[in-house]
């Protein structure tokens, strides 16, 4: 089985993997309150590839972080596979993130003191991580075309290579959900194409993908777009 395909978890494609029920997130900035996400309601079915688009500062990344349980909503509920993630303990949420979600950030998100191989396998070494094959990290590196760079350190990789390693790490624990924030930001066209190709393969393998992007080319890969505007989430069919 290719490394981007997931083992069957018994769920059907019609299941809702994500449900947001009136989710809001506000921040205090000096004396004023900023409403980054305002009463977002959303349901995403398993196996979809969804793009979140919008201007800078519209709340896209905050929405992605709310979905991934990286930040607690000021109000509302976030359900992953039907589980209210803020009704469980912090340790349980950590295990859930580790097993179920793969994050790809918009910045170089590798640990600089670990080599490429250790960076990829890092998620599988935490307490509560699901068992994975011994050679999975190497398989994933092969998949992203960096099979021979396992011993290199992040500082010796190009930006595009670092993104590919980070993407390989995202898949380490066979997550059901991939949250990718600007996965191709700052990359040249060729590298962007490679990353999108990998994302398509992952999606075809059964994982749900939500990506935040400015790029029309990237957004066009999604089945549909969600638009963020000043914290308001609206769903509309993709204009492809």
């Amino acid at each position: 089985m290719p490394p981007y395909e997931r083992e069957s978890d018994g769920n059907t494609m019609s299941d809702k993997i994500i449900s947001l029920k009136g989710v809001s997130k506000t921040y205090k900035v000096g004396p004023s309150t900023v409403r980054a996400v305002d009463n977002a309601v959303l349901e995403i079915e398993r196996g979809r590839m969804v793009a979140i688009v919008g201007h800078s500062g519209s709340g896209k990344t905050t929405l992605l972080s709310l979905i991934g349980g990286l930040t607690k909503p000021t109000s509302g509920n976030v359900l992953l596979n039907g589980t209210d993630i803020w009704a469980i303990s912090d340790n349980e949420l950590s295990v859930l993130r580790n097993k179920m979600i793969g994050f790809s950030f918009q910045f170089a998100s590798l640990i600089p003191t670990l080599n490429v191989y250790d960076n990829v396998r890092l998620p599988s070494t935490f307490d509560g991580a699901p068992p994975v094959r011994e050679d999975r990290a190497q398989d994933l590196l092969e998949m992203v075309g960096l099979g021979d760079r396992g011993n290199s350190f992040p500082a010796h990789l190009s930006g595009g290579e670092q993104r590919r390693v980070a993407l390989a790490r995202t898949l380490m624990n066979e997550p059901q959900l991939i949250l990718a924030d600007e996965p191709t930001g700052d990359l040249d066209e060729d590298t962007e194409g490679e990353i999108l190709d990998i994302l398509r393969k992952i999606n075809a393998g059964g994982a749900t993908i939500i990506l935040v992007t400015h790029s029309r080319a990237v957004a066009s890969q999604a089945e549909y777009e969600l638009r963020m505007d000043k914290g308001h989430l609206s769903e509309k069919p993709a204009e492809f």
Partner: peptide
């Protein structure tokens, strides 16, 4: 901080 956030995002617990 970013690295700590990353480790937490990947599933590292507070205790870790």
């Amino acid at each position: 901080q970013r690295e700590i956030g990353l480790l937490r995002a990947m599933g590292g617990k507070r205790g870790y």
